[in-house]
Amino acid sequence: MRLGLSTPIVVQVPGIASPWEATAGPKELTRIARAADDLGFDHLTCADHVGVPAASAAGRGVTYWDPLATLSFLAAHTTRIRLATSVLVLGYHHPLALAKSYGTLDRLSGGRVVLGVGVGSLAEEFALLGAAWQDRGPLADAALARLRAAWGQREVDGFVLEPHATRTTVPIWVGGRTRRSLRRALTLGTGWVPFGLRAADIASMLAAPAGFDVVLSPGVPLDPQGDERDSLRRLESLRTAGATHLTCTVRATDAAHYCDQLAALRALVDRHLS
């Protein structure tokens, strides 16, 4: 399994984020991203929310750094770790705009972009952005197909997109928690990023072909230094469920402790799950 990082600071969900993240900034973020890069982590992530309804803040949190700006910044401070959106809400973006903006990032980063995409679940945010809530599933399918066709192409529909990605394929991880999202991933993507599901439920749904990415998360911060047994138990359950990639976060008291925890997690995975 490949080990990835659910990037702290840039998304702060209550119950997941640690208190120190509220006052952390680019310095701490850069330190952690470089540590993950040096440790051989496969990818780091950033989510996509323009605004969160005040009524939903207690559960979802309100801190969501812009993914394009954030991943572009981190691309300049890392060398090999992949840059994954987790996830872009397709209804908020024109597919050609995504091909242009993230294609530019892919070129700048040396081909390190992973497009995590999803249908979206916040009706209020759709309304805020003037996006279509009804039929968002079929609309997302059409947008995803168009995005795939445009990726890495210089000319699309009579328009020249310069710069564009240097390759015509890109890893596309489809988020969701339903069988329909899994079908979308199998048909239009290269991987599936389920959320809010038990490992046993994921295992019962999966019949993925070889080469298909299954990107799973423990759902809670791990503490590999303080409770190695619990961390290993959680990771092993995800491997049993069919994970090919893990996206993890860790408990920490500050950025330095976070980097130490990443090193402990890397060592744990290498010893027991390689």
Rank of each mutant, 00 (worst) to 15 (best):
R251K: 15
R179G: 15
E21V: 14
Q134K: 15
V193R: 08
F73E: 10
A24C: 13
S109P: 03
Y92G: 07
H43L: 15
G118S: 13
A143H: 12
D227T: 07
R198N: 10
R167H: 02
S231I: 01
P221I: 00
A252S: 11
A84M: 15
R112S: 00
A143I: 08
K27N: 14
L206Y: 01
L268A: 12
E125R: 02
R179C: 11
P19D: 13
L246T: 00
R31E: 15
G175M: 12
R146C: 04
A200Q: 09
P26V: 15
L83M: 08
V250S: 13
T78Y: 08
R112F: 00
L139F: 11
L206G: 05
R251P: 04
P14E: 05
R183H: 15
L182E: 08
L265T: 04
S86F: 10
A22E: 15
R234D: 00
A24Q: 14
L238C: 03
L115C: 13
T168K: 07
L197C: 08
I9L: 01
R136V: 00
P8D: 10
L115F: 04
R148D: 03
A36C: 13
G118V: 04
R167N: 02
Q153I: 00
T244C: 01
A243C: 05
S101T: 12
G158K: 08
L39R: 11
L96F: 11
P8A: 12
G242M: 09
T169A: 13
A33P: 00
D270E: 13
S72N: 08
V113C: 02
G226C: 09
A150L: 02
G61F: 02
Q225T: 08
T23A: 12
I81K: 09
R31T: 09
D106P: 02
D38R: 12
G25Q: 06
L222K: 09
P218N: 05
S86H: 14
Q153M: 09
P221S: 02
P163K: 07
G152R: 01
D157F: 06
L246N: 01
Q12H: 10
A264K: 11
M1S: 07
A150G: 03
V193Q: 07
V62W: 03
W151R: 01
L235K: 03
H257E: 10
D66M: 04
A267T: 13
D201I: 12
F73P: 06
P171E: 00
E228K: 04
